[in-house]
Every structure is written in structure tokens, then in C-alpha cells.
């Protein structure tokens, strides 16, 4: 600290500079205390959305089902997908459910701090409630979209295998990863506004970089580890297909890598969010 400050403006002495320290545990505790707020915000977004949309709750079904139909009709023609014997619509729909959850969470959650900037500027609350409530909304959408999965099971006379008991573990990784990305993108978008225009394109690319329409075995075996670290949705989707459709264990090595990577991303992302949060109201 030998550099001499040549400010024309007088400033505060160095030792007075404000340092905001938030431990992750304290932050998580505060978020937990605000759980009713998260829920109320999710409810607000839901009610507001369905008071406007003609399609109402059907909207949550529309996106994944439409994509599933498109994939079934077109994609399978050009690429030969090995589904391990399961019907392709079921195979792709099981990929589309987590993908739609992720993409809705990021497209809504990424902008959540901008859409709520009126509030950010006026009321105090732990700021992560906004992206987290977007994830909750996407979760409700997914729950509704499960109806179509049930219908597919009936249509194909297919019974989920017993190994489906592993689904909650996979779900946990899916939610962890999605929440991390929602936190990071929301905070970054506030500081770099033009990222928001890139977000939809990035998500489109993400759909093809994720084994939604195809299976994970399209990726060369020696790259799958790295792939799972970079995109934890890949081993998760693969896991859903193995457990629900094929009666197999998930590929635990890949799932483990994806899970570890998600947890690290959550810790890093939450910390980054808390750091960027300090300046949110100044620029909002």
C-alpha cells in the first residue's frame, strides 16, 4: 500500500473502507428464513403469468411436448438414436423434462434481478430469492409437464422400472446445477446488460450440447468424464433413462463427477452472487 493516492476529491481513510463479509452458512440461513418470500414470489409470477396467458397452465405442457413431437418426427429420421430398446418419445421426453426445467430457470432467473429492479432498489431481502423463486416456478412447470410423461407411459404400456428409486439423487444434482447457473447468470446480467440478449442463443446451443435428443453414448467414451464435469445435466439425463426406462443403475462414475462439479459450482456461484449483490442497487 505504498502507492500514493492523488485524489483531487478527499476520500475516507483506508481503514474505514466497508468490507461486507457474508459467510455462505449465514447467507443460506437467511435464505431459509426467507422461504415464504421465495414461495410468495413464485406464486406471484405464476398467477401473473396465467392471468395473462390464454393457454393457462397448459403452457407448461406445451414446450416439452412440442419439442418431443419435433424430435420424434424429424430428428430420428436424420440420426439413428440408440435408445436401448425404449420408445423414442419416452426417451426424448425424459431428456426434455430436465432440460426445460433448466432452460426456463435460466431464461427467467437470469433476468430476475432486472425484472425486479424496482424492488431491489426499494426493499431489503436476500437478493437470491429472485433467481431461486424462478427456479421454483420452473419446478412447478416441470411437475405439470409430468402429466404428459404419465400419458406416454400409458400410451406405450410402459411401467417405470424399480431402479427409479435413484431418481431423487439425480433430481438433487439437477436442481443444484440449475440453481447455481441461475444465481450466476442473474448477477452477471445486471452488471453486463448485453449478456441478456445472448442468453436465449446460449440456451439454444445448450439444448444441442446436452444429450436430450440423443444419448450420452454419442460422446466418445474417453471424453464422457470431462463432458459430465462441464455439463452435469448430461449424466443426470442419462441416469433418468437408465433407471426409469432400462432398469439399470445410473452410471455412477459420471453422476459422481457431475454431482461434484454441481456442488463446486454452487459454492463458487453463491459466493460470486453475494459479492456482486453488494453493488446491485447502485446500478439497478
Amino acid at each position: 500500500m505504498t502507492a500514493t493516492r492523488t485524489d483531487v476529491e478527499p476520500g475516507p481513510p483506508r481503514e474505514l473502507l466497508y468490507r461486507r463479509r457474508v459467510g455462505l452458512v449465514a447467507a443460506a440461513r437467511e435464505l431459509w428464513a426467507s422461504r415464504e418470500l421465495v414461495w410468495t414470489l413464485a406464486e406471484r409470477d405464476y398467477l401473473a403469468r396465467y392471468k395473462q396467458a390464454v393457454l393457462g397452465f397448459g403452457w407448461a405442457l406445451f414446450t416439452p411436448v412440442a419439442l418431443m413431437v419435433v424430435f420424434t418426427v424429424f430428428f430420428r429420421r436424420v440420426a439413428d438414436v440408440d435408445t436401448g430398446g425404449a420408445p423414442y418419445p419416452l426417451f426424448s421426453y425424459l431428456g426434455l423434462l430436465p432440460w426445460t426445467f433448466f432452460s426456463t430457470s435460466i431464461s427467467q432467473g437470469g433476468l430476475s434481478l432486472i425484472t425486479n429492479k424496482m424492488l431491489l432498489n426499494k426493499v431489503y431481502c436476500p437478493r437470491e430469492v429472485f433467481p431461486v423463486s424462478s427456479v421454483v416456478v420452473a419446478g412447478i412447470d416441470t411437475a405439470i409437464a409430468l402429466l404428459a410423461l404419465g400419458a406416454l407411459f400409458v400410451i406405450y404400456g410402459f411401467v417405470p422400472r424399480l431402479t427409479s428409486v435413484w431418481v431423487p439423487v439425480l433430481l438433487l444434482i439437477q436442481v443444484t446445477f440449475t440453481t447455481s447457473v441461475a444465481l450466476i447468470s442473474s448477477a452477471v446480467v445486471v452488471h453486463l446488460r448485453d449478456i441478456r440478449h445472448a442468453l436465449p442463443i446460449l440456451l439454444q446451443l445448450g439444448l444441442f450440447a446436452t444429450p436430450v435428443a440423443y444419448g450420452i453414448d454419442t460422446i466418445p467414451a474417453h471424453l464422457r468424464g470431462l463432458y459430465s464435469v462441464l455439463n452435469p445435466l448430461a449424466p443426470v439425463i442419462d441416469g433418468y433413462r437408465r433407471t426409469v426406462l432400462l432398469g439399470q443403475q445410473p452410471a455412477w462414475d459420471l453422476v459422481g463427477l457431475g454431482g461434484a462439479s454441481s456442488v463446486v459450482l454452487l459454492l463458487v456461484g453463491y459466493r460470486l452472487f453475494k459479492r456482486l449483490e453488494t453493488g446491485l442497487a447502485d446500478v439497478a
Binding site: P12, L16, Y18, V123, Y124, T278
Partner: peptide, 19 residues
């Protein structure tokens, strides 16, 4: 209200704050 953070100094408000 903790909507903004100071550049320097310390701020302590105890109890429930309504703004």
C-alpha cells in the same frame, strides 16, 4: 435499510426495519 451498501464506514440498525 441495507438496500445499498456504504463505500466506507459502519452501519448498524437493530430490530425489524420497515422502510
Amino acid at each position: 435499510t441495507r438496500v445499498m451498501y456504504p463505500y466506507a464506514g459502519s452501519v448498524d440498525v437493530s430490530g425489524r426495519v420497515g422502510a
